[in-house]
Amino acid sequence: MSGGDDQHDGQDPAYGHGFDGRPLWSVRDRDAEQLRELLRRRGFAEFTEGSDGFIVEHPDDEGPMLLVHTGQPRSERVAAEHDYASLLKQAGYRFALNATGDGEGWRVWPQPAATGNTSTDGA
């Protein structure tokens, strides 16, 4: 994600602000917020200091976003990820398992309509 707001010299974020007031400076910020919004709209809880839930991050300017669920025990995470898979497929996202390298989480590519990418291979 983008660093502090200092680097933008008082400019308004190019894509407005997210649900929690987070500035959306880049297309990647916007894409991650669109995924968060989809998950929230379908009733999934977002991680907070006081509760388990999903986390969406985009560590790079290109490539997939990361989606993980912080639930404990493992059975809760697996159940949530099963529900995420159904929703992502229904919404037209391309995704792959094992975002974290330990068999959990998802790599999720932005929707083609959001980025101009026309690739539709595998889910």
Rank of each mutant, 00 (worst) to 15 (best):
E57L: 13
E37T: 15
F19D: 15
P23C: 02
E62W: 09
E49Q: 13
I55W: 00
H69M: 04
L66W: 04
H69G: 04
H58R: 10
R36L: 05
A32I: 00
E49I: 05
H69L: 03
D60W: 09
H58F: 05
G53H: 11
G63A: 05
R41T: 11
V27Q: 14
D60I: 01
M65D: 06
V56L: 00
L67Y: 06
P23M: 01
F47V: 09
F19H: 13
L67F: 03
G43H: 08
L38P: 06
D60M: 10
R40F: 06
L35D: 06
E49P: 08
D31K: 03
G43Q: 09
R22V: 07
T48V: 03
F47K: 15
D52E: 14
R22D: 13
E37C: 10
L38N: 06
G43V: 10
Q34W: 12
E46T: 02
G21F: 03
R28L: 00
L67A: 08
R40Y: 08
F47I: 08
R22C: 09
E62R: 12
A32Y: 08
V56F: 00
G21M: 06
D29L: 04
G18Q: 09
S26L: 06
G63C: 04
R30F: 12
H17F: 15
R28C: 00
M65W: 01
E37Y: 07
R41H: 11
W25I: 02
D31E: 15
D31S: 10
R22I: 05
L39Y: 03
S51E: 15
E33F: 02
G53W: 11
V56Q: 01
L67V: 00
F19A: 13
E62I: 07
G50H: 13
F19Y: 14
G21C: 05
L38A: 06
Q34Y: 13
D61G: 14
D61C: 03
E57P: 00
R36F: 07
L67H: 06
R28K: 08
A32S: 14
L24E: 01
R40P: 00
F44N: 02
D52F: 12
P64M: 13
P64D: 09
R22N: 13
L39R: 03
R42I: 00
